[in-house]
Design a protein around this nucleic acid. Structure first.
Lengths: 193, 193
DNA sequence: TGATGGTGTCAAGGATCTTCAACAAGAACG
DNA sequence: CGTTCTTGTTGAAGATCCTTGACACCATCA
């Protein structure tokens, strides 16, 4: 049912790190039996157990399940099929979220008035760029701040601290891309890109 | 212990899709109680249960848990600063054309009625994706043809033969990205991406 | 008003996961 | 050879998850 060999994957990671079942169990706060049974697929672990074990490796659950692929890759995405990764305020719609090894994230973003990626500037690897479709956005990159409006664009190295903020009183829409994909999955968006 | 609010995340996805607990349960092959308890974090679901539920959304486990964790180049581009690489009919406006080693090309594209990337399908290395801003475009990728309209999107491996064609009687606007950048400088555009 | 259909919640018990404790196999050593 | 340490496995008991079958709440509608 799983379509994904949890046991084999766990064993792979454990052996890779040269750990015994007991050693891993000890670090994870579970028993060696648990590891054994999971590796044999005799049980389907609870998320909490799996989390404990992966934390000890350490590997994120998301990483653990990466490679759990789709049969045929999707090319066309109806508007309703974009993966919503908004947090209730900002709305980010990701193209091809489930694509396993894609090189880019493409986003249809909506910033309502007041929306803000946060006072703590974003910094991460890769590059990102985008085009303002409508509205106005205040973009801070490095030390620079600019107000961009429809038709304007940006492109920068994501290692520069950056922040998006809609200081106007109307919605701002942006289409952006980043590489490598920082939204490798539809997770609850913590930030823009 | 999870450091990740499984219940809230599930509820978010379910509500986003406008499904009741019972409806989702039915599709997933579990009971509504299961959904209820998980959403309240009263239990930590087994991976197999969670998988069944996510399959019904559909969302990959990796997606579900994503977000669990965690030089002086030009940055801002005024609309007028985008590099026009159109051929008189099609209009492609490239962000950061001069950037020497950028990883992506980002384009603001305009397809007037009848515009066509050509009968000879395009094929090249890399990946490309985009979002339709307005109008309608006929996109052919591999053997598939789709009519995409505002809000729709696409993403594909550029080695698949592809072609963009505006078969409507109004302009179509797209913002797209491709990697690696297939457009270097203002060179005469031979094709779309 | 009562009937109906929708929602989410919850106790009890059956099903499954996890632990405890034992076991067997192999390696290192004298 | 036996002792000791390690490894992974496994049966039975305990803990947790999942289902059954309620229940209360809120709509709509006659």
């Amino acid at each position: 049912m799983s379509g994904f060999d949890v046991g084999a994957r766990l064993k792979q990671l454990r052996v890779q790190r040269d750990l015994s079942q007991r050693e891993l169990a000890k670090r994870a706060g579970v028993t060696n039996s648990t590891i054994s049974l999971i590796e044999q697929n005799s049980v389907s672990p609870s998320v909490s157990s799996l989390k404990k074990i992966l934390d000890a490796l350490p590997v994120t659950i998301s990483e653990f399940f990466a490679g759990e692929q789709l049969s045929r890759e999707q090319v066309f995405y109806r508007a309703s099929e974009l993966t919503e990764i908004g947090d209730g305020i900002l709305s980010w719609r990701l193209v091809g979220a489930r694509r396993p090894n894609r090189r880019m994230s493409i986003l249809h973003e909506r910033y309502p008035p007041g929306a803000d990626t946060g006072e703590d500037m974003l910094e991460h690897d890769g590059e990102e760029g985008g085009v303002i479709i409508s509205g106005t956005i205040e973009l801070t990159v490095g030390g620079d701040v600019q107000l961009l409006t429809a038709g304007d664009a940006y492109y920068f190295d994501s290692r520069l601290p950056h922040r998006f903020r809609n200081v106007s009183d109307s919605e701002c829409v942006i289409v952006s891309a980043n590489n490598p994909p920082s939204f490798s999955d539809g997770g609850n968006a913590q930030h823009h890109a």
